[in-house]
């Protein structure tokens, strides 16, 4: 899957469109940034409600391709600016982390899982 396919697969709106449209092969769901820093995999998607620029700093450190902000939380402009500078896509949705993770899992799971 590519980053640009996330919007239709998850059902979310892209709010930061200046991203590198790389391939996505994993996801990580967490609202604790220290946990994301320690455990998320490079090239993946982060599913979270942490809508602030620190999330982008962590995403950039880990090498995440995209961040999905759940539960209708509104990413502030400085978060989007930071994401633009790092070419990380930001999506926004009214769905919960559970629902987004479920949809991502179905899209990304290995064929034999």
């Amino acid at each position: 899957m590519r980053v640009s396919e996330l919007a239709s697969i998850i059902g979310c709106e892209c709010v930061q469109e200046e991203y590198a449209d790389g391939s996505v092969d994993s996801g990580y769901t967490s609202d604790l940034l220290s946990d994301v820093m320690a455990n998320a995999a490079s090239g993946g998607v982060l599913v979270t409600i942490q809508a602030h620029r620190n999330t982008i700093a962590v995403a950039s450190l880990v090498g995440l391709a995209a961040v999905v902000i759940c539960n209708d939380r509104l990413p502030p402009e400085d978060m989007l600016e930071a994401a633009r500078a790092e070419r990380i896509a930001v999506f926004r949705t009214g769905l919960s982390q559970f629902e987004v993770s479920g949809r991502l899992w179905i899209a990304l799971r290995p064929r034999d899982a």
Binding site: S34, A38, L61
Partner: peptide, 12 residues
């Protein structure tokens, strides 16, 4: 403190 990879260019 955890021993995490720290990149000053990313985190300051």
């Amino acid at each position: 403190l955890p021993t995490l990879p720290y990149d000053p260019a990313k985190l300051g």
